[in-house]
Design a binder for these strands. Structure first.
Lengths: 180, 180
DNA sequence: GTCTATACTAAGATAGAC
DNA sequence: GTCTATCTTAGTATAGAC
């Protein structure tokens, strides 16, 4: 039950913000420290190197992923609808962590890629029993990725990402096409 | 009909490769020049700055996009199937340009984001007449994004991206769910 | 646990030779 | 049109004070 050091989390929050808003290139130790309100030396006490900072963020993803998969499995409205709705509703702490770790994966970080692969596998296992066949499973997972990339990965701008009624209509369409 | 300078294109090809394989952070002028087989000075003759290099790549996207949209509209097997099949079949020069410009967009480059937005709009216009309603259009576009992100954006590793028969099954599923 | 100061390396950019 | 210096600034990392 050790209370995790506050400063460490503030640094990871700042790191996420910069990765999401400005990309890996802008996420320097200097910029992260400034955004977190600590000095570079202070940051380097908690994360001894750039690699350690990356690893700390991936570790955060692993922790949050376990909770989310459990929530998807237990969703009263059914895993498929819950999964798609939360994919489009970007902005939760977990979503921010996923997107920022995706940026690290884009930069060639192997453990970031591995953590995202594992998360995807867990989601697939949670959804599989609730859809008709493999094509339906692919459809749901890929659609979720599509919602993500538009809501978050491409900096919010491009996508006519469906929201509200349009999103509901899309979810109904997919549910009726894939239901077991 | 001025023949475009060979070296310029070699530089853009190298820039794309590094963006796709190693991310924006690794795509330094030095690394791009080395990969292209020219010196830093040589590169800077063609692209006078880092920003000019970015702009050159976005310009390449704009040129290739016009051709692709025309091909999608004229596809004998129908725009929806053609569009999804080419989304999954990553590796063409056009695909490489899209992915590498996406990396620039992730890094906060506004003209990269604008070019991708415009491409998406053109695709939507090409697909719209061939699907039943707005939800169906969203489904096709988002699914394409999902195929992309898995085939390319996340470094190839994570995705159980459907190929071959599985991809065909997915396309049939979507076509039957969305056909006008 | 957090800071300042400093060392070292790499990135972007310029000048001028060929 | 392409190269080899060279300059400047920014990024990573260390040492040591508080």
């Amino acid at each position: 039950m050790s209370r995790p050091p506050r400063a460490r989390d503030k640094v990871l929050d700042a790191f996420e913000s910069i990765l999401i808003e400005d990309g890996e290139r802008a996420a320097t130790l200097d910029a992260v420290a400034r955004r977190a309100g600590v000095s570079k030396g202070g940051l380097l006490y908690h994360f001894g190197s750039r690699d350690a900072l990356d690893a700390g963020l991936v570790e955060r993803l692993r922790l949050l992923a376990a909770d989310d998969v459990a929530a998807t499995q237990g969703a009263p409205e059914g895993p498929v609808g819950y999964f798609l709705a939360t994919s489009a509703h970007v902005g939760s702490p977990f979503d921010r962590t996923i997107v920022s770790v995706s940026r690290l994966a884009n930069g060639g970080n192997a453990t970031a890629t591995a953590a995202l692969t594992e998360l995807r596998r867990a989601w697939a296992d949670a959804i599989r029993p609730h859809v008709r066949d493999d094509a339906s499973l692919d459809l749901v997972l890929l659609l979720s990725d599509g919602l993500y990339i538009n809501s978050a990965l491409l900096n919010d701008v491009p996508g006519p990402v469906p929201t509200g009624d349009a999103l509901d209509a899309l979810i109904r369409l997919v549910e009726s096409a894939t239901r077991t």
